[in-house]
């Protein structure tokens, strides 16, 4: 595992990171390094320059503002999983962080790096889409916020523009009594989500007052499951309702489902409903308890 040669720069501030990016076209940003470094070492990726943003203070921190959570891009999976604020307000995200990779990956890997890398089988994006999160980025044209659902555009492809840097993720407050959950089928070797499902549901007056469901591992990027969501809205949260709604996930995956030697597209498509069902059921249970 020997990468090709590259220059290493460490940015102390966000402004410096932007200067370095401008000065070194094609440079790669390094945060926790758990996606980039393996690719470099395998020589599947190569780069002239690596800009380490791992010590940029502005990208750190996890704060609660009102009921929304602002998560600095350098927040690690382990920090997300251990955060009482995240668990209380966005449990799907805490759960997704807790089941990503292994302890080493969770201790080093960051949420910003994870979503910018945009692996189609990554856990955090699925939870973020179900929670209607916003991705805050800065770039040559200033700051902007991108809806999580619009951020992921393909396999390792995002809406990030040239020289834009993810700075934070904002998870907006859900309705009162919202519950959320993340459930995955973990690949036995890589730990990536063969299928990942996140659900965020509010139960009020005995019916599902809101429902957001997202699935990953199936098509090139995480997608919402609107048919599933519609089948839940206004219905009492019974096991039958959930099962019926979850089964509709197949309708929401219009593109051909990706497969690999471990799990074919056909299998993933046929069993996705099981994980969707479990995520919704867990979200409802938490919603009812909230």
């Amino acid at each position: 595992m020997y990468s090709t040669e590259f220059d290493y720069y460490r940015a102390a501030t966000l402004a410096e990171a932007h200067q370095l990016l401008t000065a070194h076209p094609g440079a790669k940003l390094l945060a926790g390094g758990h996606s980039l470094i393996p690719l470099l070492k395998l020589r599947i990726a190569s780069t002239e320059a690596v800009i380490d943003i791992g010590r940029v203070a502005e990208l750190r921190g996890l704060t609660v503002d009102g009921d929304s959570i602002r998560i600095g891009a350098l927040t690690t999976h382990a920090e997300l999983a251990a955060s009482a604020d995240v668990t209380r307000r966005a449990q799907a995200l805490a759960e997704a962080a807790a089941v990503t990779g292994d302890p080493q990956v969770r201790n080093r890997g960051t949420i910003g790096g994870n979503i910018a890398h945009a692996d189609p089988a990554s856990d955090l994006p699925i939870a973020l889409v179900a929670l209607n999160a916003q991705i805050l980025v800065t770039g040559p044209r200033g700051e902007r916020a991108i809806e999580a659902a619009a951020f992921f555009t393909g396999i390792m492809s995002t809406a990030l523009g040239e020289n834009e840097i993810v700075t934070a993720i904002v998870v907006p407050p859900g309705q009162r009594g919202r519950g959320s959950a993340y459930v995955k089928f973990k690949h036995p070797a890589s730990g990536y989500a063969v299928i990942g499902a996140a659900a965020s549901v509010t139960v009020r007056d005995g019916v599902c007052a809101s429902a957001e469901v997202a699935v990953g591992g199936l098509v090139p990027h995480v997608v919402r499951a609107p048919s599933v969501e519609r089948a839940l809205l206004g219905k009492p949260p019974t096991a039958d309702t959930v099962a019926h709604a979850a089964a509709l996930v197949a309708d929401d995956i219009r593109d051909e489902v990706m497969g690999d030697i471990f799990a074919s597209g056909e299998y993933r498509k046929a069993t996705a409903a099981v994980y969707v069902k479990r995520a919704i059921a867990a979200a409802i249970e938490r919603a009812s308890a909230a």
Partner: peptide, 25 residues
């Protein structure tokens, strides 16, 4: 339950790393 060295039809080893070859954990 988990392990298999998989070759494709042209003889490429597709389980060429620990990301695809599942040893027990």
């Amino acid at each position: 339950l988990w392990e298999e060295a998989v070759y494709d039809d042209s003889g490429q080893l597709l389980t060429g790393s620990l990301a695809d070859y599942a040893i027990p954990r």
